[in-house]
């Protein structure tokens, strides 16, 4: 296909959110303490290694989104809640990190277990 001006114009328009308007139950509530699963999938995941096994708390429930991991592996959208999860810098990096600092990261339900 030849790339024309019209093709380019189509590329930067909003392509549609990964958010889905589906009623899926949330496994966690804001304020819950969770632990990121220590999973080591082959191929694509949005759960970085530095978070695996760490304990944090649910800061915000962003709603239901298509699951990037299953999409990448050809296993469908598997829509589920995506949370903003707060981890203290000390939980991730150890006791020398400043006590008040923190890191927020967006994690899907399948990455989490109760802590």
């Amino acid at each position: 296909m030849k790339i024309t001006r019209e093709v380019v114009q189509g590329l930067y328009k909003q392509t549609g959110t990964a958010r889905v308007d589906t009623d899926v139950a949330a496994s966690f509530q804001v304020g819950d303490t969770i632990q990121a699963r220590n999973i080591n999938p082959t191929g694509h995941t949005r759960l970085p290694r530095y978070i695996r096994g760490k304990k944090g708390s649910i800061a915000t429930d962003n709603g239901v989104f298509k699951f990037a991991d299953s999409l990448a592996h050809g296993a469908g959208t598997q829509p589920q809640h995506l949370y903003s999860v707060r981890f203290t810098a000390q939980e991730i990096w150890g006791g020398e990190a400043p006590a008040q600092d923190s890191l927020y990261i967006d994690l899907w339900d399948d990455y989490l277990e109760p802590a």
């Binding site: 959110t17 990964a18 958010r19 949005r46 759960l47 970085p48 962003n62 989104f65 298509k66 990037a68 995506l82 903003s84 810098a89 400043p98 008040q100 600092d101 923190s102 890191l103 927020y104 990261i105 967006d106 994690l107 899907w108």
Partner: peptide
């Protein structure tokens, strides 16, 4: 400030 809180946001997913 040393006593301010630093918050890092990892935009690893869809937001």
């Amino acid at each position: 400030a040393d006593d301010a809180e630093v918050r890092v946001w990892d935009s690893n997913a869809e937001l």
